[in-house]
Amino acid sequence: MGKQGNNSFMGHIRPRQIMTGALRLRATFCLGGFSFLAFLVLTITGVLLLFFYQPGVEAFVSLSELNSVLPYGGVIRSLHFWAAQMMVISVFLHMVRVVWSKAYRPLRELNWITGVVLFVLTVILDYSGYLLRGGQESGAAATIGQALFTSLPGGQALATIFFGQPSSFNGSTLNMYAWHVFILPGVLGFLQMFHFWRIRRDGGVRPL
């Protein structure tokens, strides 16, 4: 997906020549690449959403203004939503494919573990994005998450760290906002780079 020039940075990231087997569609079904593509689309649309979305009490109002009043706001939000759903699905299918072609086995187990962590992070990001809507339904979803944390010993502290102080909306979106737009995507992006580097190092079917 990157540009290939002989002197460019991308040209050095990937090898000049690849194994013939890597060309076969059923070797990977492009699922890992699709996940990364989704991540790129999510990053771009997510940054655009940052310009108008307001966490906290204004969350629902600002989102509904963004969605229905601002020019192209609904399109950007819609792209963000669908890319997120497609990312969860393609990451999952990518995992199934990796187990199917036995690519998780030792020598590559570290990358498998990284991949599982990436999958979990993707699902949590999808959930936390839903919470940012700040409506009644997402408030209920936040309450369930909060209650699950509170049921742990010492979980009240964790619940406060992740979900913030409960408000009239069943939970402020401010803390989730910090997690959703900065911390989780940051960790996800970093781990992805590690994941890709390991593919090249371990010699996956497609050299990155």
């Binding site: 655009l48 009043v69 020019p71 192209y72 706001g73 950007i76």
Partner: peptide, 9 residues
Amino acid sequence: YPVSRYLRA
């Protein structure tokens, strides 16, 4: 164009 329209709203 759409992006600039959105940002200049």
